[in-house]
Amino acid sequence: MFAYVVRRILSTIPLLLVGTFIVFTLTAISGDPLSRLATADVGEEAYERIIELYGLDQPIPIRYVNWMSSAIQGDMGPAPSQGSQPTFNIVMDRAGNTARLAIPAFFFIAITAITLGVYSAVKQYSKLDYFVTGFSFLGISLPTFVFGLLLQVIFGLWFFDWFGVRPFYVLGMRTVASHGWLDMVRSHVLPIVTLWLVITASESRFQRAAMLEVINSDYIRTARAKGLPRRKVILKHGLRNALIPLVTIWAIDLGLLLGGSVVTETIFAWPGLGRLLLDGIFQQDLNLTMGVIMVVSLLVVAFNLLADLLYGVLDPRIRYE
């Protein structure tokens, strides 16, 4: 088991390096930080200093190696677009804000997707089944930004016109410390709903398919032939097997959610990792962009590994040597 984890981590490193190198190169050649940092009146001396500070006179591979070797030690350099604060601190701070959305969204996704998936599979061709199918088709066809804007129109505009109140905040993050419990909840609802819909839509379909496959399997017939009540057949024998692919997907989703959503965070003006990435790219802030990419990639890789391990825990046929 331990050996397997080590091997998996080692085998991911080259992929991670190639991936980040590509992003580094693209970012480095696409923006010239000097155009932003060194406006005409800075003077020759400051100009030279900036070139030296960011190693801009070096070839890109060298700059990449330099950046990566200090990043591994937790030093991602200063972020010029953020008043030259340490990139690492900014990224960690924003990661916390993203997690405020990701974790509750994840729980709602897991609960609704499995409920819808199981019910629509068990009651195949029922009204509920068609409803779930329609819901997931709509959700898959609805771009995140359209849905987010729609929520803003509904709750920021129409709801106020009809009832004279705005139940939820449509922009910005409010914390317990700054605004109290109620406002915190009111500011979190819409972005969480947005994340929830987008992911639940595609997952309830997958979960339905996973459950259908299980329900039509021979061992379910065996369980029924034993005289087990239907409920027990589905919840013990069915769900336990359907969970194997589902938990894997969940782990991967959680990794993606924790990496932040560029679109959702942009629409709701949420100071998370996704927005930070967008800012870094728009400000052509190489350190910041790379810092976010590193953290996001590591999250994705870590949760993929977790997914693998959970798979082994849930399926006795799989043994990691």
Binding site: L15, G19, I22, V23, L26, T27, I29, S30, G31, V262, L277, L278, I281, F282, Q284, T289, I293, V296, S297
Partner: peptide, 15 residues
């Protein structure tokens, strides 16, 4: 494994 959105953004900002 390349984050498509990042590539699109990076390239889109430049060109």
């Amino acid at each position: 494994i390349i984050p498509a959105l990042v590539v699109l953004l990076v390239v889109g900002v430049r060109f």
